[in-house]
Computed example of a mutant assay.
Amino acid sequence: MLSFTPFNGDSDPESHLKHFKSVMILHKADDALMCKVFVMTLRGAAQNWFHTLPSGSISSFKELSYIFAKEYTSYRTIKKNPDHLFNLRKKSDQSLRDYIKRFKAEKANIVGCDDRIASFAFKKGLPAEHDLYRELTIAPNQTLVEVFATAECYALWDDDRIAAKKSTKQEDQPTKRAGQKSDGFGNRNKDKRRSHPKEDATAGENYTKFSIPIHQILAQVKDKPWLRRPSPVKGDPDKRDTRKYCAFHGTHGHTTNNCFSWKTHLQELVREGHCTEFIAKQAIQRIEDRDTTKEPP
């Protein structure tokens, strides 16, 4: 006896017909047998429907398939087209691996989806500031298999980053409790020694003055080979201020203009002879005066 998935009248009739034909492929030539065995797969309301058909009204399995699909047409699954993939977006609180799994699952439901469309839709679903988006833009002629292979490499790094953040959070909890101080009103303040980049950015008044905001400088030099990437921001990403975004770190929590790491790195670049075209005239004069008096930098 062959094993069939029963049809109760509340699912896609086209899917059930495909399943039945696949199991009966060895007996497909016998039309009468196909009709009789198909009736055995019906259950409940579907079985009752079959017995309402007039005796002798079915002359072939093709005719039975047509009547069956027409009866349960309201349960047919609407097939998605490739354009559906462009609706997928990687959420800010979603890991790269989860986005890859969700995209692959949605693509699997689209029959005959062109790989080039899928590759483009996968990239468009990533945030423009994501490192993988940049990688796929630089090498746009990758096949879909190559795109997924590249994405899996980035997902491994993303998994390690998330695991490191969780580990750091667990290690920091006792330190934070020990570093809290009472303000006399029953409230406790966090240890100032564990500061966030956006707080550190307010310190230090001796930065070189530039003619344009430093976030605009980053936008103009972000593709330069001498620009070094920063270390990931510590802390729980779910607790960051999503209204503020740092293009240097590629994450939320603080703005680019208030980024301590970007300010520090920008000073290093200036000392190395880069980004000098953005220095304000007053700052250039101060640097020249300082060099004249031989002040230590």
Results as ranks from 00 to 15, higher is better:
V23Q: 05
A45R: 14
Q180D: 01
I214F: 00
M1A: 02
R240P: 05
G235N: 09
N109A: 08
S182R: 10
S95M: 10
T292R: 15
H27M: 12
K123N: 07
N87R: 14
T137C: 06
K234Q: 09
D98G: 07
R161K: 12
Q282Y: 03
Y72V: 09
N258T: 12
E268S: 10
L96F: 05
K281C: 04
N48E: 07
N187V: 05
C35L: 11
F50Y: 09
Q170V: 12
A247W: 12
E152F: 00
F4Y: 05
K198H: 14
V145I: 02
G204K: 13
G9S: 01
K263T: 00
S22W: 00
T293C: 11
A118Q: 05
L2K: 00
V233P: 08
F260S: 12
S95Y: 02
K169C: 09
Y66K: 15
E71G: 03
Q47N: 08
A108E: 02
N189T: 13
D83V: 14
S74L: 09
G235S: 07
E106F: 01
M40A: 07
K62N: 08
G253Y: 05
L42G: 07
E205D: 15
A29R: 15
I58C: 08
N87A: 11
R286Y: 03
L88C: 11
Q180H: 03
K224C: 03
N258E: 08
C275T: 09
V221P: 09
R89L: 06
K80R: 10
E205T: 15
F61Q: 07
A155Q: 02
S231W: 04
E272R: 15
I25N: 04
H51K: 14
K209S: 14
N48K: 13
K198A: 13
L227T: 03
I284N: 09
Y99A: 01
Q47C: 06
R228N: 05
F20Y: 04
T175L: 10
F20V: 00
K181M: 00
N258S: 10
I284V: 11
L88S: 12
G204Q: 12
T292D: 11
N258K: 13
L227C: 02
T293W: 10
Q267D: 08
K36W: 04
L33F: 05
K239D: 03
D93Q: 12
K198I: 12
K104T: 10
D114F: 00
I67L: 09
I214C: 05
T256V: 10
L17H: 08
F185D: 11
S261Y: 02
W157P: 04
K222E: 07
T5S: 03
K79Q: 11
F260Q: 11
K166H: 09
K104L: 05
